[in-house]
Every structure is written in C-alpha cells, then in structure tokens.
Amino acid sequence: MSATLPAPRGARRNASVLLRPAAKPLLFVASLLPLAWLLYGALANTLGANPAEALIRATGDWTLRFLCLTLAVTPLRQWTGQPALLRFRRMLGLFTFFYGVLHFLCYAWLDMGFDLAEITRDIPKRPFALVGFAALLLMAPLAATSFNRAIRALGAKRWQALHRLVYAVALLAILHFFWMRSAKHNYAEVAVYAAILAVLLGWRLVAHLRRRPVAAG
C-alpha cells in the first residue's frame, strides 16, 4: 500500500529500526511498564487514599490508551509510509485485551470481592458497567483468533470481518467512559479520547467511502 504513497525522507532507515528483531520485545516490555508502575504503587502505597479505586481507574485508562494505539497502526502506516508498523498491531491489540481483563479483574476483586452473585447483580444494574462488560466480551473473540493458525483457519476475509468488531469495542469503550464521568459532568478527558477515536475511526470511514483498499484494523 505504501507503494501508492511517496515514501518520506528517512523512511527506509526508520523502517529498518522497526524491522529490527529487538523491536517487538522492546514494545512488549514497554507495554508492561504501566502494569509494573501500578504494582509498584500498590506495594509501596503511593496510589493515594483509595488505592483500589486508583487501580480500577488506571487499568481502565490504559485499556483505552492501548485501544487508541491499536487503532492508530493502520492510519499511521499510511500517513508515514511505514508498512512495517503492522508488525506491532497484534501485540498492541492483545495488550488492549490484557489491560481490559485487568480492569475487569480489579473491579471484580477489589470492589466485589470475587462474589460472583454480587457481580452478576451489579453489572446489569449499572448501564455504564454493562457497556464496559460488553466491550470486554467483544474483545475476547478477537484475542482468541489473534494467532496465525486462527487466521488461516478462518480465512483472511472472515477473519477481517470478525476483527472489525474492534470498531464496536471502541464505541462501547468511549460510551463506558463517558457514562462513568457523566455523574460529575466531567468530560474533559472523555473529549480527548473521543476526539482521537473519532479521527481514527473517521479516517477509516472516509477511506471506505472512497473505496480505497484498506486493511481492517
């Protein structure tokens, strides 16, 4: 796809950095840093007066951030003419799911004490929690079909169609965040993420409407 775009100066050198064997392990370690920071905070008691709430919120924030990063891969590789960026999309997507699961586990453990009956009563009672839970459920099949054998088994077309669920995940995630903040009419941060997601999803919509071939992502 980059062949249709003029490659910017230095693209070749940058691409070679992106293609280095160490690039993926480095991204993997970097993606674990938020978790390491939170674990340190929990152990060193630097998460403030209500560390349980801080953990639940921070894991939610990081889920949203990784979701934005994942969705940014496809537009970025077109804008920058760096097809090699695609190498990192799967890992970023899996980290989105990973932090989403952590977010849910923090809620289920720290708020609900892993009381399954309580959790099943609590989630439907709170629309914002229900929407968040739905987003997590929708991510599960994407994570489960992220390995090469699954792609081959499904066939590229069907795999791609399935993975377009990520757009629904993005909409549910931002609704979850918006609803959570609505109690205090505190939308500044929500607006930032909504704007980023609007650009990333809007770009795809425009690309689709122009009938240019765009990879799912």
């Binding site: 209500n50 349980a52 709430e53 309580e118 009563r121 609590d122 009672k125 709170r126 629309p127 914002f128 109690a183």
Partner: peptide, 8 residues
C-alpha cells in the same frame, strides 16, 4: 447506579 450495601 450502585449498591449501598457495602463500603470501603
């Protein structure tokens, strides 16, 4: 929007 049965 939430239960009041418990507190932290």
């Amino acid at each position: 929007r939430w239960s009041q049965a418990t507190e932290r």
